[in-house]
Amino acid sequence: MIELKAVSKVFGQKIALDDLHLTINDGQIFGLLGPNGAGKTTLIRILTQILEPSKGIVYFQGAPLNFSDVKAFGYLPEERGLYKEMKVLDHLLFLGRLRGMDYKSAKLSANHWMDKFDVSSWSNKRINTLSKGMAQKVQFMGSLMHNPEIIILDEPLSGFDPLNIQLILDEIKDLKKRGKTVIFSTHNMSSVDDFCDEVAIVNHGTLVIHEKVTSLKEKYRTGDYKLRFKGNQIALANALWTSFELLECRELNQGQFEARIRSRGGQKFNDVFNELSGAIALEAMEEQLPTMQDVFLKLVTNEK
């Protein structure tokens, strides 16, 4: 478990982080969100001990974080950096050895990850001969080489094509299954929706919110439902009456429609279904929970 207590970071006149309290539990995927310049990277650099907090303290597994803990951390920074003249295998070995691995286990691990990502044929290629996406993969492997407990990924999906995005996302899910903690900083809100357990939104160096994704979505639910039905729009409008607001309706096929409605009285799914099913032939209905994009925008806009 990582605990930040009253952590502040000041650069000259600029307050990058201000009295931040945050707890990140083990074995979860933790989303760290915030607009550009919010203080996410500063926070990550404090966790990876690249920077020291100006005030406050960071605890790791109950004890103040110290430099010997870096071996428990794997870090993929937002701005990727590799030695362009080095060969892929040599680079992985170098990163592994810096994280405390001996040569033999570093080589075993490097080969394991290269096999896993199906890139063993690159092992003797120089980094400067790889495409951007390939180099990103090498760096991703480098951050996991030493089997860390905490993996901090700053915008891990940027620069990847859809196939590789899926590969990385699957790998992150797999890490969670193996009990690892993944701290995931991103602007890609759909990926947060998919698999983050908890999120923290930081803005202007302060913590705006820290909650489980499910409860956050519950908290910010709008009572929107999407339905597909057969009949006509007038029948739907009559059925909605004063309890619902019709947001959108469009005809899919002859006599088949898709509509989006919003409940005005906080009705539950069953209430909505019961009210509508007598008036129209409902084919499908689902509640539309807010996306993290919606929640993020709402919170950050409210902050402003």
């Binding site: 690249i50 951390f73 990727r80 950096g81 590799l82 362009k84 990163l95």
Partner: peptide
């Protein structure tokens, strides 16, 4: 060069 190609951040997360 390390500052330009951003490897320094990776290194500093492992070494002092």
């Amino acid at each position: 060069r390390e500052k330009t190609n951003r490897i320094s951040e990776v290194l500093l997360s492992s070494v002092r």
